[in-house]
Amino acid sequence: MKKTIFLMLLLFIGVASFKPTEAVNPKTKVLVYYFHLTERCHTCTTIEATVVSLLNEKYKAQLKDQTLVFKSINTDDKANEALCKEYEAYGSTLALTKLKNGKVVKKEDLTNMAFSKINKPELFKGELVEKINPMLK
């Protein structure tokens, strides 16, 4: 009996950990989150602006029907604490999340790629598209 309860508890914890911290539309397939501090540098704001510009340019329909969701999140805001913890986002962080039926299937941290390629916006955008497209399928 104890073993069954323990196994059920484990199963519950397992399922719970795959649910995103924030409530999402079951239709949503990809979350694009950009985390930042209150005090932001030029590179940080440029990364966000470039991501937003790409999404508006290539994924307008998906943004409209919420297949793809973009959020800019301030890591200094206490209200975002749980979300920042989930993504280990303590400062500027670009994260992609693939969802299926409202549950997290895969997470990808693109922060290093973003900071190293932002000087070449077309290259940065290209890599982002390569990551987003398979997640939308």
């Binding site: 400062g91 500027s92 790629m113 973003a114």
Partner: peptide
């Protein structure tokens, strides 16, 4: 650089 921006402050 990305690791730096992600973790340095908090």
């Amino acid at each position: 650089t990305g690791d730096g921006f992600k973790y340095a402050k908090h």
